[in-house]
Nucleic acid binder design. Structure first.
Lengths: 333, 333
DNA sequence: CCCATTCATCGAAGCGCTTCGACACATGAG
DNA sequence: CTCATGTGTCGAAGCGCTTCGATGAATGGG
């Protein structure tokens, strides 16, 4: 538990026999430094195990090198995707030499206010943005660089990133239509998610409905417990006996849907074709392996950080809609 | 997008007609300040919307008011519990006026080194600690205040928090024994979790085995896909036809186990009693509602932060083992 | 009524870093 | 050979805050 005196830039400068400012310039690369000096400094840095003091750096440069990741942890959220996303954000931020401050919704919008005003972070990454998200107006007047995951109703002037869920929904419907299915259904997110007006759920539904307008198509919300899923699936087939195509946009329920079909004696893909919108690993672990449109959580996180970094550098950053990709496996024909 | 000049403590001092240091003392409460002055300053703070600059504060006080939450995001982890835990950590940290920096394992142990050396954080909270965790030795020599969630093999000198999983395992076995069951089984975590030497899984197993030494007890690992769970359950009953009690310590598999029992025509609790170790909401959502020992994620997070804060204040902090609590519902008799 | 305390406040010295302007020296054009 | 132009380096001035010691003013005991 030795309490080591921390190494400062002055120690490095002394060790290398140069001025403090020279060390700073070597580290930041903001001015030309001769190769010999640069090497000498770098060696001293290594020898002393120097790490710049974050507070001092932030104070002097007005850049904290930290971004906030705001995760409103609500019910019915897709945890695995969220985690993948968070991991990817942290990893990407590190690549840009930034760290990530974790915030939840508990503190409310004032939390954003606080971290921005205290210069704790340089920018904000908001996840799980809703169609009319209360954080959006605040965000506008805060004038803090930010990127949203998901699209609010009015995205004017904001930078947003998301999978193009409308295309994803359409892609699923089109795939089933191409397979000759005329009567299909969408099993969506839990009811509360729609009631909350969550963008991605609504947009998937819209894309699906639009693409399936010439078919016999229905859409129902879907809870995530086995019993409720089984009930929903049973009801669906009772009401639509001719149903042969199913799109499942609810990762937690995917397994249950397959189990329920099994229980009803309908085999996949012989009797029913199933397409899921979920991460690849979930689709691959299912039995049979599911034809799916993946949610590219990693890519979304990566893009979001990239855009935020661009904004921090004062560059323009347009919203990004990621093109969905359908992978055909064993659950459709 | 107006770029507001940030309000500094000097602005507040001027507005209130006092010295900068007086404002500082009002804010920190480290020296006596007359009631009238205090009020005047607090009003100015509110009027100007002042938020102390985090970098400057950290630099001057040598306290960043930030703690690191290190989440190694591995396969087979219990995501919902993890999230609950993270949420509780953030909320509790805020109550102590601290923020939370999110770190993953990707950066390796040097990441810990880095954030500690750069004074980005004041302390570390390590989650999902393994029996022989590579981060533990580094932690010791770092001399940075830290709290671990979970117990490594050698916890000497470290502060750890966890549910007493051995007691939890024992509690389940005892409950079944008290119900007259003589042949019981533990369905555990996925195999990889044991192979990795994850403390909580091993300790539950140990507690269960010890408490069930007079019974006919077996324990098997359990994967998390429906097919594998069904297979495991089937095999279990093939080999042990007299089995009437089941302990499930795998949240992701709980639903599948019930589905598999249903498929095998064994009803709960008539033919088989089932006890789960999982959060209450999962147990309550199952059908039938499960008798369970809950994983008090929220409490663990809370305690962990409390202990870390104590250490930051130079106070001693002993490890905490949380007593499990069994809730009887409809799945056992 | 004086001196020793206590209380409330102030001023100034850093904390460790970035960045601006200055300077010494080398270089090549005229 | 001189003068403009780069190059590479240095010194010093902050960045916004905390904290130490000092200073007056108010208080009370002898």
């Amino acid at each position: 538990m030795r309490k080591v005196r921390t190494v400062t830039i002055a120690d490095v400068a002394r060790h290398a026999g140069v001025a403090v400012s020279t060390v700073s310039y070597v580290l930041s690369g903001k001015r030309a430094i001769s190769a010999t000096t640069r090497q000498r400094v770098q060696e001293s840095v290594r020898a002393l195990g120097y790490h710049p003091n974050a507070g001092a750096r932030a104070l002097a440069s007005k850049r904290a090198n930290v971004i906030a990741l705001v995760l409103p942890l609500r019910a019915g959220m897709n945890l695995p995707v969220l985690m993948q996303f968070a991991t990817s954000v942290v990893a990407t931020a590190r690549r840009y030499d930034h760290d990530v401050l974790l915030m939840t919704a508990d503190e409310g919008p004032e939390g954003l206010q606080r971290v921005a005003a205290s210069a704790l972070v340089d920018g904000l990454l908001l996840m799980d943005v809703e169609v009319r998200d209360p954080r959006v107006p605040l965000l506008r007047e805060l004038g803090e660089p930010s990127v949203l995951i998901g699209f609010p109703a009015d995205a004017e002037g904001l930078t947003c990133v998301d999978l193009d869920f409308a295309r994803a929904g359409a892609l699923c419907a089109e795939h089933l239509a191409a397979g000759g299915h005329r009567e299909i259904a969408l099993l969506g997110a839990p009811r509360v998610v729609y009631e909350r007006g969550t963008g991605y759920a609504e947009r998937t539904l819209a894309g699906f409905t639009e693409a399936a307008r010439d078919l016999n198509a229905v859409a129902v919300p879907c809870e995530e417990t086995y019993d409720e899923v089984a009930e929903t699936v049973k009801l669906l087939f009772d009401r639509h006996p001719g149903l042969t195509g199913l799109v499942v946009h609810n990762e937690a329920a995917v397994g249950h849907v397959l189990a329920a079909l099994r229980a009803l004696g309908r085999s996949v893909p012989e009797d029913v074709s199933v397409v899921a919108i979920c991460p690849d690993d979930v689709a691959e672990r299912a039995s049979p392996a599911l034809t799916s449109v993946l949610i590219p959580a990693e890519d979304v996180g990566h893009q979001a950080v990239r855009l935020l970094m661009a904004k921090l550098d004062g560059l323009p950053a347009d919203s990004v809609l990621l093109e969905p990709r359908l992978t055909i496996r064993e659950s459709t024909r």
